[in-house]
Computed example of a mutant assay.
Amino acid sequence: MGYAHYTVTRHDGIEIEAGYAVEAVCEQDGCTEQIDRGLDQLCGSWPGTPEDGCGGYFCSRHLYYGDWESEEPQSLNCKPCIDKRD
């Protein structure tokens, strides 16, 4: 799979275009920041898998590392996903 452009089926069954060549807007309510749908904008570690994130795409202001104390590698997550972990 190339990372410039591909199709992802989200956990709700909706297919979207994703990849760093796909222009989008941050999915945070009220945010209008232009982003791409690359892995660095993804809530979670892998597209289409909700195990560690919602699979939404967010600007850098709306993605966070959740657990600074953990020894394990952490994915970036949106605030609602981090709140679910706590």
Rank of each mutant, 00 (worst) to 15 (best):
V22M: 02
K84R: 15
H11F: 11
W68T: 12
H5D: 09
H62Y: 01
Y6R: 02
V8G: 04
E17A: 11
P73T: 11
T49I: 07
Q28C: 10
H62A: 07
Y65S: 08
S60P: 01
Q74H: 00
A24M: 05
C78K: 09
Q28A: 12
C81A: 10
S60Q: 13
C54N: 02
E71G: 10
N77K: 13
P80T: 07
W46H: 05
R10G: 07
C43M: 09
P50G: 06
Q28E: 15
T7Y: 09
E51H: 07
E15K: 15
D52Q: 00
D36C: 08
G30L: 04
E51C: 11
Y20H: 13
T9Q: 15
D83A: 14
H62F: 05
S75E: 08
E15H: 05
D29A: 12
P80K: 10
Y65Q: 09
Y57S: 00
S75G: 14
I14W: 00
K84G: 07
Y57A: 00
P47Q: 01
W68F: 13
G55N: 01
R37L: 04
C26Y: 05
D67Q: 09
T49E: 13
E17R: 11
D36W: 03
F58R: 07
S70T: 15
R61I: 00
S75K: 03
C81N: 12
E71C: 06
C31E: 04
I35H: 10
T32F: 02
Y65I: 13
G13F: 05
K84T: 12
D36Q: 08
T9I: 13
G19K: 01
E27N: 04
G38D: 08
E72S: 13
G53F: 01
G48Y: 00
L42F: 03
L76M: 14
G19F: 00
I35M: 07
S70H: 09
A18H: 01
E72T: 13
D12F: 05
D86Q: 15
S45A: 11
E23P: 03
G44C: 08
K84M: 14
S75R: 01
D86G: 14
T32M: 01
M1E: 06
D29N: 12
E33C: 05
C81F: 11
Q28H: 12
A24S: 15
V25L: 08
P80L: 10
K79D: 12
Q28K: 15
